[in-house]
Amino acid sequence: MNHLVEAFDLLLDAESWSGPGGFGARMLEHLWYTALALIISSAIALPVGLAVGHTGRGRALAVISSGLVRALPTLGLITLAALFVGIGLTAPMIAFVVLAVPSILAGAYAGVESVSPATTDAAKAQGMSGWQVLIKVEIPLGLPLIIGGLRNATLQVVATATLAAYVGAGGLGRQLFLGLRTQDYPLMLAASLAVILLAIILDACFEFSQRLLRRLLGLV
């Protein structure tokens, strides 16, 4: 219990947030890693997921391959990647992208598939082209689920981004691994709490945007 109190003291101390190695800088770094991983994985997974949902082709392949990828242990993947690309951000980034892609992919095709076939059929019969059906009907109506996929991916990455420090990159993992090595448990705990806080804030942002979206789309 003492450790927990000390951890909170540490977090409430302005001193520990300042400076290039403080919680503030590390948290921004952590956020930046998370954002970068999401941008890269969205660039890969959104087009593929939307295409799978729109055409109905390659669904089995998408399901099986994302299941396979999900089963990969992230720490092992980081270590393996680091063997090839060396110490730094590249190896953990590869692992984060691999971690985020299945959720985003699943959200994208599930979102498009959730649109009633009668609605897309009607849109087509009014004279919308395939692209127009995708952009004007399937994406807007599937958006809550598509964002749900991004939300899952964000939570997974923000929690796992601590592992970046394992191969020499930054983020809140720095404090966590430092505390681990020096047996400074309050520091470790404080770093973990900071990650949890970040995860909760991000999740709340997603919750808010999903609600807002449902209202804007007239779905509630």
Binding site: A118, A122, A125, Q126, P140, L219
Partner: peptide, 22 residues
């Protein structure tokens, strides 16, 4: 087909309206 459908009116069962549009 797309040009053809735009000059033919189509009304279906269950209206087929876009739920996210006014």
């Amino acid at each position: 087909p797309v040009a053809l459908r735009r000059r033919i009116g189509y009304v279906m069962q269950d209206s087929g309206l876009l739920p996210h549009r006014r």
